[in-house]
Amino acid sequence: MGPIIPLFEISEEINLLIAFLIGLGFGIALEQAGFSSSRKLAGMFYGYDTTVLKVFFTASIVAMLGLVFLNDLGMIDMSIVYVNDYYIASAIIGGVIMGGGFIIGGFCPGTSVCAAAIGKIDAMYFVGGSLIGILIFGQTYPLWEKLHFAQHIGPVKLSDTLGVKDGLLGLIVIIAALLMFWIGEMAEKRFKREDISKEL
């Protein structure tokens, strides 16, 4: 039964090796999707390229369905799998700040590392900027400490809050995502920018 490493107490070295291999797959998937291009990423917000939407939602749906099926086959103990801790204020405010960073800088941390790897100079500066941002947060932490821990809800799942099974909520998410894919593809036609798409 999974998750393998925590349950079978596998050595730290193997754990780190697996981390590297998973990162390798992560990097390849991001680069192949085109997430190493800031103008492609930014296209999401102007409608000329909705790759971000498609990749992002397809990936989370595949993983979500995978977890539901693994659970059904008795292959994973979901009570051990990490569920993000929810602090209302910091999640929303942090998310808003990140959204601003996304549209200004054109990357997010994962994609910037991937883009820097293939020589995008703007991505290298973005990574540097991220380190500065984290340093600023660390240096001014006393100012944010209270906000950081305000309104703690805990590691709560949306399905539990709504009182539905994971699989049923999954189906709803799938239908919503497919609708968005459809809108996204329409937007790509409507806001087509041949000049940009050619360069990407």
Binding site: I97, G101, F102, F126, G128, G129, S130, G133
Partner: peptide
């Protein structure tokens, strides 16, 4: 943008 993202994250 990077600094904002780093801070927000």
């Amino acid at each position: 943008g990077g600094a904002l993202f780093g801070f927000g994250s």
